[in-house]
Design a protein around this nucleic acid. Structure first.
Length: 260
DNA sequence: ATGACGGTGTGGCACCGA
C-alpha cells in the first residue's frame, strides 16, 4: 500500500499536475493540503475518472484538505475532535485493504508566521489539540498514519540554514517540542527510518531560485504508528513535480507499507 | 531587507504562505 501527501497550493491551479502525478504514481491514497477552494468547486468528477474517491473538507481562499483513495473512505472526521477551529485543516478517514484497515489523518498544520504573534499562539493551541485527539485516535486505530504539511522542521537536517534560521518560524524549540509530543504517543517519522540523501527537503520558496539552489525545508511528514512501523518499506520525496511549469512550492512524500 | 514569488480576492492593490 502506498500513501502520499502533497501540499498543492491551490487545487484549481494544480489539478493537471495532480492528475499527471497520479497517472505516473498510482498510489492507493493521496492526501492533499491547501486546496484553497470550497467543496462545491472540488474536481470530484475529474478525480473519479482518474480512479479515485475523494473525501473533502474545503474552504474558500485558504486551507482545505482532502483524501483521495482507490477504495472509498469510511468514518470521515473533519477537523480536530475537541478543538474548535474556524479553518479547514484536518480530515481523517479509514481505508480498507485486503490485509486490514488503515486510519489516515491528513493535516495542514498552522503556519504560525513568527514566534510571539497571535498566529503562533494559535499554532501552539492547535498542536496541543491535535496531540490530545491523536491519543484517542491511536487507541482506537492501531494502524494509523498522521501525515501532511506539518510546518515544522524536526531537526537541523531538515533545514538549509540551521544556524541562520535558529528559533525562527518552523525551527523553534516550542514547535519541535510539540512534534516530539506526537512521537511520544508512539508515532515514528517514516522518512528517518531509512538512510536518506543529505539535504532532503519537501518545500522550497518560490523566490531567489531556492529550488535550484536546494535552499529548502523538510516540513511535510509521514508519521506511522507502532503497529505499522514493521510494515514500512520506504519513504521518499519526489522532487520531479517541483521542476514542472507552475509547480507547487511543496513536493509529494510517499510511504510504502508492505502486507497492507 | 517590512524585499524576492505565487496563490486568492478584489480592484488597479492587499493579504497570506513558509
Amino acid at each position: 500500500m502506498k500513501i502520499s501527501t502533497w501540499n498543492v497550493n491551490s487545487l484549481a491551479v494544480r489539478l493537471p499536475q495532480v492528475l499527471d502525478w497520479l497517472a505516473a504514481n498510482p498510489v492507493d491514497a493521496l492526501c492533499l493540503q491547501e486546496l484553497k477552494l470550497s467543496d462545491d468547486k472540488f474536481p470530484l468528477q475529474a478525480l473519479q475518472d482518474a480512479g479515485y474517491h475523494s473525501a473533502v473538507f474545503g474552504q474558500k481562499t485558504y486551507n482545505g484538505v482532502a483524501i483521495l483513495s482507490r477504495t472509498p473512505a469510511r468514518n470521515v472526521v473533519k477537523n480536530i475532535v475537541g478543538f474548535t477551529d474556524e479553518q479547514s485543516r484536518v480530515i481523517a478517514a479509514t481505508l480498507d485493504s485486503p490485509a486490514g484497515e488503515l486510519r489516515v489523518v491528513n493535516g495542514y498544520f498552522v503556519n504560525g508566521q513568527a514566534p510571539g504573534t497571535d498566529k503562533f499562539t494559535y499554532k501552539m493551541k492547535w498542536l496541543e489539540g491535535l496531540r490530545n485527539w491523536m491519543a484517542t485516535e491511536l487507541a482506537a486505530h492501531p494502524n494509523l498514519v498522521l501525515l501532511g504539511d506539518f510546518n515544522i522542521t524536526v531537526d537541523d537536517r531538515d533545514t538549509y540554514d540551521p544556524e541562520g534560521l535558529r528559533e525562527t518560524i518552523h525551527h523553534t524549540t516550542e514547535e519541535r517540542k510539540h512534534f516530539q509530543a506526537l512521537i511520544v504517543l508512539g508515532l515514528t517519522d517514516a522518512f528517518r527510518m531509512f538512510d536518506q540523501p543529505e539535504k532532503s527537503y519537501s518545500w522550497w520558496d518560490y523566490r531567489e531560485m531556492a529550488f535550484r539552489r536546494n535552499r529548502g525545508l523538510r516540513i511535510d511528514h509521514i508519521l506511522v504508528s507502532e503497529a505499522l512501523k514493521p510494515k514500512v518499506e520506504s519513504c521518499t520525496i519526489d522532487k520531479l513535480p517541483r521542476k514542472n511549469e507552475r509547480p507547487s512550492d511543496h513536493a509529494p512524500v510517499t510511504v510504502t507499507l508492505k502486507s497492507l
